[in-house]
Design a protein around this nucleic acid. Sequence first.
DNA 1: GCCGCTTGGTGGACACCGTCCACATTAAGC
DNA 2: GCTTAATGTGGACGGTGTCCACCAAGCGGC
Lengths: 228, 228
Amino acid sequence: MDGVHFVILGSVTASPPATEHRPPERRRRPRGAVREGLVAAGLELARTGGPDAVVLREATRMVGVVPNAAYRHFADRDELLAAVCAAAMAELAGRMAAGVARVRGRHGDPAAARGRLAAIGTAYLEFAHAEPGWFATAFAVPQQHAYGAPRDGRPDRSPLGQLRTVLDELVEAGVLDPQRRDGIEYPIWAAVHGTAVLAGPGPLRGVPDATRQHLQELTLSFIGCALA
Amino acid sequence: MDGVHFVILGSVTASPPATEHRPPERRRRPRGAVREGLVAAGLELARTGGPDAVVLREATRMVGVVPNAAYRHFADRDELLAAVCAAAMAELAGRMAAGVARVRGRHGDPAAARGRLAAIGTAYLEFAHAEPGWFATAFAVPQQHAYGAPRDGRPDRSPLGQLRTVLDELVEAGVLDPQRRDGIEYPIWAAVHGTAVLAGPGPLRGVPDATRQHLQELTLSFIGCALA
DNA sequence: GCCGCTTGGTGGACACCGTCCACATTAAGC
DNA sequence: GCTTAATGTGGACGGTGTCCACCAAGCGGC
């Protein structure tokens, strides 16, 4: 899952149309280029239209290849979508990590730990608002291709993994009662995720920006209350 | 929104195939029958496949009518989907209402009020688990056809409305500090909704039943903590 | 050098979908 | 009884995912 490449977008253009007539550009691209291009194209489509917008034919068009070429790299559309979803999820994880990294203060300091928890939630909600297409895509992994648990050994950079790390720090810092630590990541995740979903594609969509901001603060302070 | 008819499902069959040859059953159905039939058919499709499964042509086939007939009753597929979504949401609201109604105890009694809050959350989560297709559909209202606020006058039977009612009762019963009442319905809704989504179509899908049950309890007790 | 195999891109087809148009029929109103 | 609106039909179009047969490029073994 962290084998996902952060593909540079915006340059998913096909090979430039030959000015002189030529047998239709049958050249073979470098190894893996088409596959990565398809994922990048899918990511681009998903960004504005969510998971439903990643349509196989359109992606191949952007890469400059015939629709069937995709089937050399993915079993079907769902497998392509799964790759795009993984990339979107990685992007979310990256922004969350960047968010917590911005919080100063040494490990174990209560205030800093609290700040890092808030940063995680804020980054999550910011991402959901700034990139609704990607956010929806990150959680739209098709049934068959769910990505499994992270290979152990490496630190877990998934959203849940990062949340767990901060919660452990909160225990260490004496902010959170160790007895209440077990499993508390799930309600917290749920509260933040629920806020993102309700205010994004959900029934609270389209509320004015100030209201949305207020909702975010309500959720974060709600979580604070439940921790104390 | 509460003008939605609770359509009886299961009998969305087309007119029985004539044994003797006849001009293909051009008889006109009673007023509104096709429209209601389409919604019922859509609901049936959504039940097993979610919003994506409500495909216009299939619905018309179930009703026994040609695809284009649908366009006499709905501007496009999205409008049909919106009707199906509204019906699914009404079903959710109905089950929630039934859940709270089962809790005995007079209005204003602290324990009863607490019980009603728990019943709301439980009914919500039960519905999401028992009817994942409908649950997803209830929140998949297409952008253009969002249903507006309930006509005032009538009590608000929407999920949010029911939650508000119970929260008001909790204040009345002295369980919830009135100063903390304002806006608290949103984090609570978000926590429950988030749990439903994460454990349903989300990354926590497919956890064993006992674990899911545990997640529900964690969320409910988390909410309890934040209230006190 | 050549042969043959694997890898990956092409072309053409199929079924299905949402949607539009022109037409036919029925029901309702005068 | 005629007119008119409402409703269902038939046929078409472009778009989609997917399958099959074909073919070109690269590669290893002889």
